[in-house]
Every structure is written in C-alpha cells, then in structure tokens.
C-alpha cells in the first residue's frame, strides 16, 4: 500500500509564499483561490514572543469528512491516500467545504483576473470551465505524481513526480513521499523529529505533518 503525505518543517519555513505561487502557477487556480497558503502565527507578549509560518491546504485525510458528506461521490480517496475531486460529478453544493476543518476547499463562480479587469492571455489560455462552480482544492499535484510514476520516477525524490510546492520551497521546509516506504523523505524525517498534525482531535487523520523539533 502507498500513503502519500507531506511534511512542513516549521523551523525552516520563512513564509516567503513561493509554494503558494508555485501552486498557483502549476494548477492555474483562479485569482482569489490559493490551494497552498502559508499562515503567519504570532503568539505571546514581549519578550516571550513566537512567530511561525504554517503552510496549509488540503490535508489529504485518511478519514476525510469531505468524502463522507459528498452526495455525488465526486470526492474520493484514492488508494494512495490522495483525496481527489471529479469535477464532472460535483454539483457545487458546498457540503464538502463546510465539512472540511482545514478550510481547504474553494468554490469559484466567476473567474476574475489576478490583475483586475479582463483575464490576461495566459489566464485565458489556462482557464478551465470544468472547475467553475464546483469544489476545488489541493490535489498533491496528482497528475504530476501519476505521470512521474508512469515514467518510473519516485514521488518525493524525483522532482518530476513531486508536488510543485515541495519542488519550489526555497528553505527545504516541505517534503513529500510515501509514509509506507521507510526510505521515503517523509518517513525518514518523521522518524527523527517531533511533529504534530493539525486538529487531530477531530479524528480526520490528516496526511500533513508539521515538524517542530528534533527527537
């Protein structure tokens, strides 16, 4: 079995948003939609203050509430753990969006240019009508993974089979791979670090791990 997961080393992330931009470029998301976001957390009072940057997006849960509630089976969990959406089945009811505790799902009804006014030539070329008025979210760049694997590449190791956000991370904060493979980048990282998963108390078993310390 394969279980793809992502790790974000919070000691390394500098909040540069390169992953956000890379995701938008790779997936041509509409102007107001970011499948990969980096949040800025600040906590405490001077001099005990902490600031940390936290990449968020679909957590590709092992027990995804979005899949349970979807009335159309458009949302499915693949055998490799990636939660996918069939845009041709989705009716855009938004139930998955209110079921997701990670605010990872977006429904866009009107395509806007990121620069205001008419869509640019590039935006026009990459506009995808099938993604309008349906739920969309991070796919872990599933197309890229599938195409890379078909060429014998290893997701998380070979960049052509690895999500765009991970490839673009300037600080090496993001990693990707198969949790079931002890030699994958994520397995090796998790074996030697302390980490948490967000909102774990909700029982969703997210596939996104936040590293905070060495063991």
């Amino acid at each position: 079995m394969t279980r793809y997961a992502m790790t974000a080393d919070l000691r390394r992330c500098v909040g540069c948003q390169t992953c956000t931009t890379a995701c938008r470029h790779a997936n041509a998301t509409p102007a107001e939609v970011q499948w990969r976001q980096v949040l800025d957390f600040e906590q405490g009072t001077y001099p005990q203050v902490r600031r940390v940057f936290v990449p968020v997006g679909c957590q590709h849960c092992a027990d995804p509430p979005c899949e349970h509630v979807c009335p159309t089976t458009a949302t499915k969990k693949r055998s490799d753990g990636i939660v996918s959406i069939d845009y041709d089945l989705c009716i855009g009811c938004g139930y998955c969006a209110v079921a997701c505790p990670y605010q990872a799902r977006h429904i866009t009804h009107k395509s806007q240019s990121a620069f205001g006014g008419k869509r640019t030539e590039s935006e026009e070329k990459r506009f995808d009508e099938s993604r309008m008025s349906v739920a969309t979210k991070c796919t872990f760049c599933a197309d890229r993974i599938d195409a890379g694997k078909a060429r014998g590449l290893t997701p998380g190791v070979d960049s052509d089979a690895t999500p765009a956000c991970v490839n673009s991370c300037i600080a090496g904060a993001l990693a990707f791979g198969d949790l079931e493979d002890a030699r994958s980048p994520v397995s090796e990282l998790l074996a030697r670090t302390e980490y948490f998963r967000m909102h774990e108390e909700l029982g969703t078993e997210p596939g996104f791990y936040y590293i905070v310390d060495d063991k």
């Binding site: 979807c70 159309t72 089976t73 009716i91 309008m132």
Partner: peptide, 23 residues
C-alpha cells in the same frame, strides 16, 4: 437548495452517495 448549488443542472447526482452522505 437547488438555487444555491453551483451546477443546478447536475442536481440529480445528489442521489448517488447514500452510503455515507446525509444529503
């Protein structure tokens, strides 16, 4: 509800997932 959904002309798809969806 029909007025609210993004793709109203696919609304019959709502009947597909009785296994787990309360909708």
């Amino acid at each position: 509800v029909w007025l609210e959904i993004g793709r109203p002309f696919r609304s019959l798809n709502v009947f597909i997932h009785a296994k787990t969806s309360w909708m």
